[in-house]
């Protein structure tokens, strides 16, 4: 399903709608360049999941954890150089913890996924316009 948004606020709103429906244990692989709205989308997700959290990019911590009935683990794999580093950051443990894993820069860690992930692609189609494609996962109405 493809969605067009015209501002960061709209991207966040789409994330919130997605977050309301995303099941616990889901792995969300996010693809797209810098400044495409991935973090805004995840910020919306957190809100949609009912988490009272300030979401900022986990670029330097690799992962930010947000606690709740459905916890959210927000990854940024940009700085990961190899699959071995998945072990260093405890990736498998996060999968087993039953939260929702949202993974920015999934491009860098193909080995992290087992084929059951929800794929979301972000493309810049104008200064503020984004084309967001969601493959798999809950239906948004």
């Amino acid at each position: 399903m493809t969605y067009i948004t015209h501002s960061e606020t709209e991207t966040e709103e789409l994330g919130a709608r997605f977050g309301e429906k995303v099941p616990a244990g889901a792995v969300i692989a996010l693809y797209g360049d810098l400044g495409c709205g991935k973090t805004a989308f995840v910020r919306g997700m957190a809100r949609g999941m009912g988490l009272d959290a300030v979401v900022s990019s986990p670029t330097f911590t690799i992962v930010n954890e947000y606690d709740g009935t459905r916890p959210l683990f927000h990854f940024d794999m940009y700085r990961l150089a190899s699959a071995d580093e998945l072990f260093d950051i405890g990736w498998e443990d996060y999968l087993a913890r039953g939260g929702v894993c949202a993974v920015e820069w999934s491009e860098n860690v193909p080995g992290a996924f087992e084929g059951d992930e929800i794929v979301i692609r972000f493309a810049k189609t104008g200064d503020n316009d984004r084309e967001i494609t969601i493959e798999g996962g809950p239906r948004l109405c």
């Binding site: 670029t59 330097f60 911590t61 690799i62 992962v63 954890e65 700085r79 443990d93």
Partner: peptide
Amino acid sequence: IYGGVVPEIAA
């Protein structure tokens, strides 16, 4: 080397 505190490494 990461430029921030990586939770698993900290633990």
